[in-house]
Every structure is written in structure tokens, then in C-alpha cells.
Amino acid sequence: MQTYLLKWWQTIRISWSKYTAYRLNFFLQVVGPFLVFFFIKYNLWSSIYEGSSTPVIKGYNFSDMMHYHIWTLIISLLGQGYAAMNLSEDIRLGRISSYLIYPFEFWEFHTAGFVSFQILQVFVSSITLCLAVFFGFIEFPSLSIILTGFSFTLFMGMFWFTMQYFTGLLAFWLEETWIMRVLLSIIVSFLSGYIFPLELYPEWLVGALKYSPFPYMSYFPAKIFMGQEVNLTLGYSVLTFWIAVFAYINHLIWKKGMRLYTAAGM
């Protein structure tokens, strides 16, 4: 058991040094989204509010809207990384064979990579949060809100990972899985409330989404961070359900893909 945990720890460390090897890249990935948020979303929404006849759109005044968008930004940094990108490359370039020999399985290796990425993203999102507070976009929320929000978002990150893992596994059949990832992220950004808060959508749509994982990927945690009342039990149970579903699907796909892989002797 102990040696098993050591393996995990070592793998996490290796992926960590991979992520931080290129300093400036890392810096750009931290600062990039914040700057873009600042330039585009801030400017865009302020001109929208200037052009609007009412100062309140569906219950959001300008500063509410800004708060909402800053939190969705921090949530996406924390919970929607791109850790599963190497996975499809491994499959496509036939590097799986080496995992078949290691006494450490493919999914374990990539999950360890994900864990290390999450640790990194906790730093990144905290820095972003501090920047946002520093520039006066938001106020620092209470500790209990921070803890509830971060833990929910990290949990959501697990769902995101199982879904990314799913698209990565499609590399057994598809040459380029990034297309699937882009498609998925477009869908998610709309349905999760990353682009517009869900209140702006028609009610039937919001109702239909309630048991899907989408609202819990941006809208729901943003509400937690903004200190609003949410049904945490519902959020956790819906996500748990979907994590289980995707984990099972991934398991099946992996089995099927492996049969294909070994048969073709790629």
C-alpha cells in the first residue's frame, strides 16, 4: 500500500515539473485569461449596460454582472483544466505499449497528472482571485464561502476530468481529438452559464438543465462564491451521478479500445 502511494506521489511530482518547466508559458497561462477577462468582458459588458435602457438586466446590475463573470473565470481556472490533453497523444503515437509494461496503469498515470495539475491550478486561481480583489473588482468573501466554493469546484473538476478523459479515449478511433474537445467546450460554455448567467435564458431551458451536469460547472459554483443560497446536496449528487456514468463509460471504451489496439498491434 505504501509503495503504491509512493508511485502516485512520484508521478504527481514528475508531471508537476513538466508543467512548470517553461516559465513564461506558465506565466502567460496565468495572466492571459485575467487580462482577456479584463479587456473583453469588462469593456463589453460596460458598453452593453450603457446601451441598455434599464440599468438592470434580469436582476443583474453592472457590478453584479462583473462579480458573476470574475467568479466564473476563477471557477474555470480551478475546475476546467486541460490535463487530459496528453492522453490522446499517448494513444495516437502508440505510447500505450509502455504503460502496458509499467506496474502503474494508464488511468492511474493520467489521474496523477490531473491531481498535480489541480494543485497547480489552486495556486493559479488563488493568484487570480487576489488580483481581482486587488484591482477592486470583487471583495474577498468569507472563509467559509471560500472553502465551500473551492471544494465544490474541485469536485466539479473531477467531473470535468472524467469527461476530458472520455474525449481523450476517442483517440482510439479519431486522429484528432482536439476537435471534440473544442466542440465540447463551446457547448459547456453556453450551457454552464459561463457566457451568460442562466437567468438570461428562457425558463424551460434552465429547468431542463437542472439534472444535467452543465449548470454545476459554472453557474452553480459562481452562486456559491457570490454568497447566494444554493442546494449543495443537489449539486453534489448530480455531479456524483455523472462522474459515475462517465467513469463507467470510460471503463468500457478503454476495454474496447485495448482490444482494438492489441489486435491491430499498432
Partner: peptide, 16 residues
Amino acid sequence: KKKPGLKGSLQSFFNR
């Protein structure tokens, strides 16, 4: 040069 491990990565990140 980078020393192995988390600490090494952090060190070389800030002070190369």
C-alpha cells in the same frame, strides 16, 4: 540545471 522533485521545480522556477 534543475534539482529533482517539487522543491527543485519551484526553485528553478523562481531562481534559475
